[in-house]
């Protein structure tokens, strides 16, 4: 992991660390801590998606499904079988990784639109299962009675505790992902992204790498889902539908998919835009949301992090190959 990334990470960590103390004294923005908890949870999903989209060049419209599989696995294990929440979270990742492997092996042979379609179809099917298996998931009216998360024998209920827990996990995951990217795996991924056939011809097992990244992104989404479960303590299929899969892709796009920081920036920004800043538009909110997307996609294809010209060249070259 490069020196520049360490510096950015340090800066980001300090910012995240002091953020609650900056906003809490002011009533008008005190609830920003809650928004940031959700932003942190979504960040986990988006970091995984960014690895898949930006580094491996594959699109997935099924992230909300993995998010949901993690969430429902946690919910069912803890509320119906009394499993320890942390163990259940581990269970969720195992289930997600398995499902991702089963779906990923045939899907990732597909490209571009076809891959988008396959993942989209899978995501919608999973959502229908959430809604239909009423005995297990509570169906569309929701799953309730999910226990709170416990740490050191204490229930985690306060928003501040959640904030630091979630963001602590986000930073651990970031460090892990940067390590992956700077290892042999990362170099292989970049090679796949630049030119898959060339990579294959020099002996990179492209299919295997793509499936592994897909599984990693599913595992991250699953952890996010488990956290969501215990934070909200109620699950509803509509939190994991196609619209959310699209939203996750948008968060990564808006931030800039060629760097993990882009995913982070995009997620935080879009969570605030979607839940906070557009509310002044009331009924017009949906139009404002659409307009923002359009402007970013048209004029800022590299996302927010490309504004400063930061690593522009590499990203530009990578973008041209994106999705092919």
């Amino acid at each position: 992991m490069g020196r520049k990334n360490w510096l950015i990470m340090l800066g980001a960590a300090i910012f995240i660390g002091v953020f609650p103390w900056l906003v809490m004294p002011f009533k008008a923005v005190s609830h920003y801590v809650d928004v940031m908890v959700f932003a942190g949870i979504f960040s986990l999903v988006c970091i995984g998606l960014s690895l898949l989209m930006g580094y491996a060049g594959q699109i997935s419209l099924a992230q909300a499904a993995f998010f949901g599989i993690g969430a429902y696995t946690s919910g069912i294990l803890t509320s119906k079988f009394g499993v320890n929440p942390w163990l259940a979270m581990g269970g969720g990742t195992v289930v997600c990784a398995t499902v991702a492997w089963v779906v990923g092996v045939p899907s990732l042979r597909l490209k571009g639109h076809y891959l988008a379609m396959a993942t989209l179809g899978f995501g919608v099917i999973v959502n229908i299962i959430f809604a239909e298996e009423v005995n297990w998931t509570g169906g569309p009216s929701g799953m309730i009675d999910i226990p709170y998360l416990r740490m050191f024998g204490r229930k985690i209920t306060s928003d501040l505790a959640w904030y630091y827990l979630v963001w602590g996990i986000v930073f651990l995951v970031l460090i892990f992902c940067f390590h992956v990217l700077h290892s042999r795996v990362g170099r292989a991924l970049r090679a796949i992204h630049e030119d898959e056939r060339a990579a294959e011809s020099v002996g990179v097992p492209t299919a295997g790498f793509k499936v592994r990244v897909f599984m990693l992104s599913a595992v991250l989404a699953s952890i996010a889902g488990s956290l969501y479960t215990h934070y909200v303590t109620c699950l509803n299929p509509s939190s994991f539908n196609l619209m959310w899969s699209i939203r996750f892709v948008l968060m990564v796009m808006v931030g800039g998919m060629q760097s993990l920081w882009g995913a982070l920036v995009g997620t935080v920004l879009m969570t605030f835009v979607g839940n906070e800043w557009l509310q002044v538009f009331a009924e017009l909110e949906i139009l404002a949301y659409g307009a923002i997307l359009l402007v970013v996609a048209l004029f800022l294809p590299g996302g927010i992090v490309s504004i400063g010209g930061f690593r522009r060249k590499r990203r530009q070259s990578a973008l041209e190959g994106a999705g092919t």
């Binding site: 009533k27 809650d34 909200v232 509509s238 939190s239 979607g274 909110e285």
Partner: peptide, 19 residues
């Protein structure tokens, strides 16, 4: 407006309480 979304609704209620 919670847009019929449980997550947004959760945030909206927290906002009503805190802000």
């Amino acid at each position: 407006d919670d847009e019929t979304d449980p997550t947004k609704c959760n945030l909206a209620v927290k906002k009503l309480i805190k802000k």
